[in-house]
Each structure stands twice: as structure tokens, then as C-alpha cells.
Computed example of a mutant assay.
Amino acid sequence: MQDKNSFRKVVKDRRGNGLTANEDGINAEIIVNRYLDSEYFKKADIIFAYSSMKDEIPTERIIQTALKSGKRVALPKVISPVSDGAMMEFLLVDGDTLYDRGVYGIMEPGCGERVSPALGTKRIEILIPGLCFDLEKNRIGYGGGYYDRYLAQFDRKRFHVTALAYEYQIFEAVPAKEYDGKVDLVITENRWID
């Protein structure tokens, strides 16, 4: 396999033919617990999270735990479609935030204070979605390029990027271009890739 779409198809096939929804649910719980127990979560002042889609590791408990522990939480809002540059921004959320269905049907904050990873001395943790990851922490997303474009704007030393993934999303190597941003850590139900 050489192209990203081939890898995306393999993960979708593995997801459809492999584990049952119950097993995925059990593994997702393990992954979320591992992340919540990590120093990256515990020490973060701000968590840049995302509203998970159906087949992704659910992020709702992470978001709620962060808010209850006094952390600030930001979620992405798409401001331009792929055809116009695939741009997004992050807005702070809280228990009163109202959400709208955005691009791909993903829940986005309707409004909120805009924040960025360039926030002074704050310890920033960014959770990033993806379909495929490899042992070098390369990532294949869904093809829009939103996260690659967004994160490329900032000094990577200012934040830590974590991906949560099922073991069947991990490959020995995936194709990566110079502009494809790596993650700093991948947490699966079986291991930490860091």
C-alpha cells in the first residue's frame, strides 16, 4: 500500500470485520482511562479536544473530567470548508455551551472565546483525531487537512499532541509528507507509542 486512501480503507475494513461494538467499547474505556491517568492530562492547563464521531474513541468523558477538574477546554469549529482552505479555530466550552452540527455532522460549539496554542505559559495538551497511525507517530486523518493546517501555524514546542486509537489503527509505517504533522504520543488499549 502506498497511498493514504488504501490505509484508510484497511482501517475501515478492520473496524467492520474485527471487533464487535462491545469490544470496541471496552477498549475505548481502557484508552480513555489511560489518558486520564497520564501526566499529560493531569498537568495540562488547557485541553484542546474534539467532539468524537461514531467510530472514534469517545472524548465526552475526557471533556467533562477536564471541566470538573477546573481545566479550560476548547473544541474546534470549522470556519472554512476544504474547498476554501480547510481552516478551523478553537473555542472555549463549558457546561452551558450550545452546540451546532458542523462539517461532516460533527458537533461544534456555537460560540465561545477563541483560543490558540500560543497562549503564554499555559501547559497545553491537544487531542487529535485520526484514522491511521504508525510506530513513528505519523498520522493519516480523514483527508481534509484541517489539523495539519491548524497546527502548522504554531511553534510545536508550545504544546503536546496526543492521539487516542484502537490497536487496529496502528501500522508499521504509513505514508507521510513533509507537511503532515506527527503526534507526540499515541495511546491504544495495549501500548503507548511515544
Results as ranks from 00 to 15, higher is better:
residue 2 Q to V: 11
residue 3 D to Q: 13
residue 4 K to W: 06
residue 14 R to Q: 08
residue 16 G to T: 02
residue 20 T to K: 02
residue 26 I to M: 10
residue 28 A to R: 01
residue 28 A to I: 00
residue 31 I to F: 06
residue 35 Y to H: 04
residue 40 Y to P: 03
residue 41 F to C: 09
residue 47 I to P: 10
residue 50 Y to K: 03
residue 51 S to H: 08
residue 52 S to N: 08
residue 65 T to M: 02
residue 65 T to F: 01
residue 66 A to L: 06
residue 66 A to T: 11
residue 71 K to W: 13
residue 72 R to Y: 09
residue 74 A to H: 04
residue 75 L to A: 10
residue 76 P to T: 12
residue 82 V to C: 09
residue 83 S to H: 09
residue 83 S to D: 13
residue 84 D to L: 14
residue 84 D to K: 15
residue 91 L to S: 04
residue 96 D to T: 12
residue 105 G to W: 03
residue 105 G to L: 03
residue 105 G to H: 01
residue 110 G to S: 14
residue 117 P to V: 02
residue 117 P to T: 07
residue 121 T to A: 14
residue 125 E to A: 11
residue 127 L to H: 12
residue 131 L to W: 03
residue 131 L to H: 06
residue 132 C to D: 03
residue 133 F to T: 02
residue 137 K to G: 07
residue 138 N to M: 05
residue 141 G to D: 09
residue 142 Y to V: 06
residue 148 D to F: 06
residue 149 R to N: 15
residue 155 D to Y: 04
residue 160 H to M: 11
residue 160 H to A: 09
residue 162 T to F: 11
residue 164 L to Y: 01
residue 165 A to E: 06
residue 167 E to N: 15
residue 170 I to L: 13
residue 175 P to E: 06
residue 176 A to M: 10
residue 178 E to K: 15
residue 185 L to F: 05
residue 186 V to Y: 02
residue 190 N to M: 11
residue 192 W to C: 12
residue 192 W to R: 15
